[in-house]
C-alpha cells in the first residue's frame, strides 16, 4: 500500500486539496465564455402579403439570407447560406446555386452537384402568420420538395 510518513501525507493532502480547489474554481470560471443565450435577431421573417409574389418568381432576401420561390405548386424557401463555410450562394434559374467562396454547386432544388459542400442547401418552413402575411422560419428545416399552398 501507499507508504508515506505523516509529514509526506499531510503535504500531499495539502497539495491535492489546493489543486482540487483551484481546478474546480477554474472549471467554474471557464464556463463564462460559453454563451448561455445566443444573441441574434429573430429568425422568423414576415415577408408581407403572399399575393405580391407572382407565380414563377424568385426573390433573393438579403437580410433573411434566403431565396423565396413561388411556382404552380406553391411557395418554398431555400436558405442562401452555403453548407460548406457559410458564404452566400448566388442563384441562376437554369444552373441552380453557386457559392463564390469555394465553388460549391447546387442544383435548382438545392442538392449538391459539385464542390466541397457536405450537404444540400436547407429548405426552410414557409407558413402564413395570423395576420395573413407570408412567414418563413429560418430555424426550421423542412424536407426537400415541400411546398406551401396559400388558401
Amino acid at each position: 500500500m501507499f507508504d508515506a510518513g505523516r509529514r509526506d501525507f499531510l503535504g500531499l493532502a495539502a497539495i491535492g486539496s489546493a489543486l482540487a480547489a483551484l481546478g474546480t474554481a477554474l472549471a467554474g470560471v471557464l464556463r463564462l465564455p460559453k454563451p448561455a443565450v445566443l444573441p441574434g435577431p429573430m429568425r422568423v421573417y414576415k415577408l408581407g402579403d403572399p399575393a405580391q409574389f407572382a407565380v414563377g418568381s424568385v426573390v433573393k432576401m438579403d437580410a433573411e439570407q434566403l431565396y423565396l420561390f413561388r411556382d404552380e405548386r406553391g411557395f418554398h424557401a431555400i436558405s442562401s447560406v452555403c453548407t460548406h463555410l457559410g458564404c452566400i450562394v448566388a442563384h441562376s434559374e437554369r444552373e441552380g446555386f453557386a457559392c463564390p467562396c469555394h465553388g460549391s454547386k447546387f442544383d435548382t432544388q438545392g442538392k449538391v452537384t459539385g464542390g466541397p459542400a457536405p450537404t444540400g442547401l436547407a429548405w426552410l418552413e414557409v407558413s402564413l402568420s395570423p395576420d395573413g402575411q407570408l412567414q418563413v422560419n429560418g430555424e426550421t428545416e423542412v424536407s426537400r420538395g415541400t411546398r406551401f399552398q396559400v388558401g
Binding site: 438579403d62 437580410a63 463555410l85 452566400i88 463564390p100 467562396c101 469555394h102 465553388g103 464542390g115 466541397p116
Partner: peptide, 22 residues
C-alpha cells in the same frame, strides 16, 4: 453580411489551408 467578397480570401499564409478547405 448579404454579399460575400468574391473571391473571399484569408491572409496569404492561410490560403494554403483555404485551398485544402475547398
Amino acid at each position: 453580411p448579404a454579399i460575400p467578397e468574391n473571391p473571399a480570401k484569408a491572409p496569404w499564409y492561410f490560403l494554403g489551408l483555404q485551398e485544402l478547405v475547398s
